[in-house]
Nucleic acid binder design. Structure first.
Lengths: 221, 221
DNA sequence: GCTCACCGAGCGGAACTCGATCATAGAAGT
DNA sequence: ACTTCTATGATCGAGTTCCGCTCGGTGAGC
């Protein structure tokens, strides 16, 4: 169970994904180009005002090309969100590899850092949260991104740092993820660089919450 | 500075509100009927798929009537959200009055109870969060609902229960509100009655967070 | 009777389709 | 290897459908 197994790979909830998987090299470039364009446009005009025509034009493609790959307008946004989440997971892995965490908190902190970095650098990232609520009606079967990420993170923390795993840990990590997502989003709401006060407080909240259950950081391992 | 001053009254960020204020009695009923319909439809088809025609039909009105009062589709949703927030504030006041909180935590707890109750009973409430992010592009001037509510709540806690007020308290309460909003929303994501586990954990998180700054509940006053 | 409220056909524009046209990969031929 | 050759993937964009929104005409309240 390596890091790349945990965090890499396919998106969790593939919302029908694409209509037709691209086979040629040029078309895969097109596909990511479409998402790049969508990301930029989303930052410019917002979630509601984005039109497929804008995306097509910005990507230097025609309308038809958009609909070749995505069944409808919202599917484009879903795909954008999925890609952002994927990149987040990959960034977490990089961060873990490069920083070499010595305890469980360092590992959790990597995730925060990755999230903040992407918020700052990746166009369209602010639009795309873990919690995709309020959009789909009920659809109880579909799993939340936060749940998946919490499960994966629980695996790492349990294996690498000896935290007692199981559903308890997963539950608490999911709560943690939800908290962090909301506070960090708040940090970026009116500050493109992220309000450091909220970011710091987010780390503090997460740490205190988890320490409450799993003891001081230094004690584990 | 009474409770009704704090929590009652007009919405914070009135998004142009209505085009024409209704004067006759029948039309005010129409207006709220439109929002009722919108709430139900939002629960059924979701935020993205809602159409003005659906709202009109469900309300037993015609398309033109919708547009008599609201400039566009999103204005209807904004109005719905504002009404929900208003009802939440009113509910908090009721809750505070009826339960007679003896310390600051009881007061905060009232807000949680009000939120949960409304989530359960009020159609469309799940769609309508404090954090309205990800929709508008940047628009830095506009204030978040969470900030307003935090400020009002800070006033109550400082005056009634002797917590040390000021920007610190407001900041922490805003963090608290964001956390609570996200965790509670998670609780209701796949359970229309709200997953009690998340609800309980939400209370716990809020309490621990605030106790960390303001000492044990019993100590104050 | 004067204004407020309501209606719903109609207009404009955005979402989405589909058959014609072009590009590419890779097999077949030299 | 190096060039056709061609099946199929990829692209285009005019056209269709549907939805957001307007506006002049009709009815209900004060």
């Amino acid at each position: 169970m390596s890091l790349s197994d945990l965090f890499g790979g396919d998106p969790v909830v593939s919302g029908q994904q694409v209509r037709i998987e691209p086979t040629q090299q040029r078309s895969t470039a097109r596909l990511s180009g479409l998402l790049d364009a969508a990301a930029v446009v989303v930052d410019e005009v917002g979630f509601d005002r984005i039109t497929t025509a804008m995306v097509a034009e910005r990507a230097g493609a025609s309308i038809g090309t958009v609909y070749r790959y995505y069944p409808d307008r919202v599917a484009v946004l879903q795909a954008l969100r999925e890609r952002a989440v994927l990149r987040f997971r990959q960034r977490v892995v990089e961060q873990l590899r490069s920083s070499g965490p010595e305890n469980w908190w360092d590992a959790v902190d990597c995730a925060v850092t990755a999230f903040v970095d992407l918020y700052r650098s990746e166009p369209g990232f602010r639009i795309v949260h873990f919690a995709d609520r309020e959009r789909t009606p009920i659809s109880g079967s579909e799993e939340l991104e936060s749940g998946y990420f919490a499960r994966q993170l629980a695996g790492v923390l349990a294996e690498e740092f000896g935290l007692h795993g199981g559903p308890e840990l997963i539950f608490r990590l999911e709560v943690t993820v939800e908290m962090a997502d909301s506070i960090l989003s708040r940090a970026f709401h009116s500050d493109p660089n992220g309000d450091e006060r909220f970011i710091a407080e987010c780390r503090r909240v997460m740490r205190d919450y988890l320490v409450g259950y799993y003891g001081p950081v230094a004690a584990s391992v």
